[in-house]
Write a protein that binds this DNA or RNA. Structure first.
Lengths: 250, 250
DNA sequence: CCAAAAGTGTTTAAAATACACCCATGC
DNA sequence: GCATGGGTGTATTTTAAACACTTTTGG
C-alpha cells in the first residue's frame, strides 16, 4: 500500500499526513486502535496521506474507514503537529528494506512531515480492526498504551485531553455505545473518560435533564442482579445539543 | 517578500501555510487585524509560510511578530483548513503581474494549499500594524469585516467561535488589555466577545472569585463620572487557571 | 436469604440570577 | 443638581453535592 502511494506520490499532498486517534469503549475500558508494523517494536496511530484532490476531512474519513470498517462516526480534527524533527530518522535504509520500498521512491517519505490529528469515537462492537499485509491493528486500553513511534504519544494525549474538555461542552455516548444501553453503562463511559467516580444519583439527574435520552420499555437481559432499563438517544435532540453545546459558563 | 520566498521555495514546507486571526480590543470593539494587498479589492488574514526548519508554532509566532511587533502574546492553533479547492484560481497571471512575480517561480503558489489557523490575542495599544510595500494592514471591527479572500471568512468565524468557547474554559483579559485596567473594561471585553450584556454585579462577583485579579491603590484618571479602580492580573494565578481551566462540568 | 447492582427521593450547600441603593464626577 | 457610570449587598431561585433506603435478581 505504501508502495502504491510512492508510485503516485504526485497525487498526494507533500509533507502532510493524517493520524487518527480512534476511541472505542469496551469492558469498561476506553480503548484506542493502534497499529503495529510487523518487525517493528513500536506501535503507532493509524494514519494516512492526503490525496491531492480530496478535502482533508474526507481523507481522514478514508483512514478511519480503512481501519475500522465503520461509517458515519464522530470524527473531529483537534490539532496539527509540526515540530521540525518529528519524523527525522523515521524512515531509513533498513526500514525501506524491510518494507520492500525502493529507497529512491522512499525519499518522499523522508521529507519533513506535518500531521493533522483527528480523533474518532466509534462503536467498539461494530468495529473490525483491519490489519493489513504488513501490519497488525489492535484495540488497546488507553491506560496500557505501549511506546509509540514519533510524537504519537503526544498526539494521543492531546486527543484524550480534547475529548475530556469536549465532554463538558457536548454529549458523547451516541458514538461510543450500542444503540440500546443502560444508564450505568453510560456512567461508566463518563467515569472512564474522566478517570474518576461519579455519584450514581447525581449523574442520573444531570444526564436525564439534558433531554437526550429515551427510556425504552425493556430491561437488559441476562445480567446478574437487578436488571437495568435500556435507553437510547433521541438523535434529533442529541444533535441539537451537540450543535448548541451545554454548560455555557458566562 | 513573496519573491524572496519563491526564490527559496525549497526552504519552505510545500502546500502548507499559516493564517493568523489577530484579535485586539479597543473602543469597546473586538478588532481583527486584516491585510489588503494593494489593487486587490478583497482583504485577507495575515499569513505566511513555514520554513522547512521551523516548528509550525514558531512559524506562527514569526507571522504574528511581523504583523504586530508585539511579542510574548497568546497564540493558539485552532484548526487546519484544507478543502481541495480552497485556493484554486487564487494566483493567476494577472496577480503575478501586479505583484511582479515571475509566473514560472509563482507556480509554487498555485499548488493546493492547506492552511493552519492560529488565533492571537494582543494588546491593541502596544501593537503597530505593520504594512508592507505592497500591502496595508489595518484593525477592523469584527462586526464590520469586509469580504475576504479564499476561505478566510470561514477561518475567522471559526477563530471567534473557538475564542467564545475558550472563554468558558480559561480567563482571557491578560492578553487583550493593558497592564492596568478596570473591571468595567474587562466586562466590556467579555460582553464584546460574547456579543451580549452581562449583569455588572454578578460579573464582578464571578470574575473576582476566580482569584486572578489584584486591586490596585489607584483609580483611573480623567474619566467622566465616578472613577473606577484599576486592577491588574496576578500572573501566577492567572497562568495556573489557564492551565487547569475553569467551569469543569462533570 | 444474602450479596450486588439498580432505581429513586430528600436534605443541604453553593452558585447563578435578579434586583436597589449609594457614591463620585463632569457638565 | 442631575445624568451617568461605578461600587457594593441582599434576597431568591436554580443547580450541584451529599447522602440512604428500597427493589430486583442470581446463586
Amino acid at each position: 500500500m505504501l508502495n502504491d502511494i510512492l508510485d503516485n506520490s504526485h497525487n498526494y499532498q507533500p509533507g502532510l499526513s493524517i493520524d487518527c486517534v480512534i476511541f472505542g469503549f469496551h469492558d469498561n475500558q476506553l480503548k484506542v486502535l493502534l497499529i503495529k508494523v510487523n518487525q517493528n517494536n513500536k506501535w503507532s496511530l493509524p494514519g494516512g496521506f492526503i490525496p491531492i484532490n480530496e478535502d482533508i476531512d474526507t481523507a481522514a474519513v478514508t483512514v478511519l474507514n480503512q481501519r475500522t470498517g465503520v461509517e458515519g462516526v464522530f470524527l473531529r480534527q483537534f490539532g496539527a503537529f509540526g515540530n521540525v524533527k518529528r519524523n527525522e530518522h523515521h524512515f531509513d535504509k533498513k526500514v525501506f528494506k524491510s518494507l520492500k520500498i525502493d529507497p529512491e521512491k522512499g525519499k518522499w517519505l523522508t521529507q519533513r512531515f506535518v500531521t493533522l490529528g483527528y480523533y474518532a469515537l466509534v462503536d467498539f462492537l461494530k468495529t473490525i480492526p483491519n490489519s493489513g499485509q504488513y501490519e497488525t491493528a489492535e484495540w488497546i486500553d488507553h491506560k496500557e498504551v505501549p511506546e509509540l513511534i514519533l510524537d504519537h504519544k503526544e498526539i494521543l494525549d492531546k486527543a484524550l485531553d480534547t475529548l475530556r474538555t469536549e465532554l463538558n461542552l457536548m454529549p458523547v455516548g451516541y458514538n461510543l455505545l450500542p444503540e440500546k444501553f443502560t444508564i450505568p453503562e453510560l456512567q461508566k463511559l463518563y467515569e472512564t473518560i474522566l478517570d474518576r467516580k461519579l455519584d450514581r444519583r447525581n449523574f442520573f439527574r444531570k444526564i436525564t435533564n439534558i433531554g437526550i435520552l429515551v427510556k425504552l420499555d425493556e430491561k437488559k437481559n441476562n445480567v446478574a442482579h437487578k436488571a437495568p432499563y435500556l435507553y437510547s438517544f433521541d438523535k434529533e435532540k442529541y444533535d441539537e445539543v451537540l450543535k448548541n453545546g451545554l454548560n455555557q459558563g458566562w
